[in-house]
Amino acid sequence: MAKSIDVSDLNIYYGDFLAVEGVTLTIPAKSVTALIGPSGCGKSTFLRSLNRMHEVIPGARVEGKVVIDGQDIYGSDIDPVQVRRQIGMVFQRPNPFPTMSIYDNVIAGQRLNAKKMKKSDADDVVERSLRSANLWEEVKQRLNRPGASLSGGQQQRLCIARAIAVEPQVLLMDEPASALDPISTSAIEDLIHELKADYTIVIVTHNMQQAARVSEDTGFFNLAGAGLPGRLVEFNSTKKIFSTPDEPSTEAYISGRFG
């Protein structure tokens, strides 16, 4: 189920503006890869290019290759809708569908894939996903309540349950804990630890302690200069990045001297 991601020479554009330039890296399967860097350096843009959510914005496009499981997701015969069905995404702010119940939120992706589903199968998927997201015990009595009735941290775990209900190959997280309090953040981090047994996880974070806590590998993004595109400065094991990084600018960033 979990797959590695090979990115080579990826350039990402908004119209004529080159936002991210020349990214080449390999994201290993069944592990957590963190992307760090100052605001506006293109790490979220890069993350969104991994499931083709980037091109939802008019004029946005990429050059280069993103290969998952031997297949270039930007190949001419690839439907972006199919790509997104296999790569889950969790956003910065929790975004459950407000009019749907908790149950319907979790099953929403399944309903898109296969229109007809037996009630018992659906029940199983909902329970399994909510259990994986560590939310089952809190909501099992009120699955028919609206998703918006939960707290922020619960909503974010509901969104994770929704993303993993379709058993994606990869799970992308765009600052999943930045809008949450410390307790919910810790719950999400524990969850990430558990999920990496089954999923390839890529997480963008502004919180360097968080990157150090949850990830195996870390990529540091930075702008090449004011008005220049963002690029991947260094990609290494998290241990190395946070102790003896190869690049001086990485060291400057993680030690808080800039950014």
């Binding site: 959510m53 809708v81 997104r84 296999q86 889950g88 569908f97 898109l112 969104c159 929704r162 379709v166």
Partner: peptide
Amino acid sequence: PKLQEEAALALGATRWEMVKMAVLPY
């Protein structure tokens, strides 16, 4: 809200499915 639309799209909704899941209920 953009966030709602992106939630649907990221699940692999087509344009019309996104409209059904996010736009019309809102």
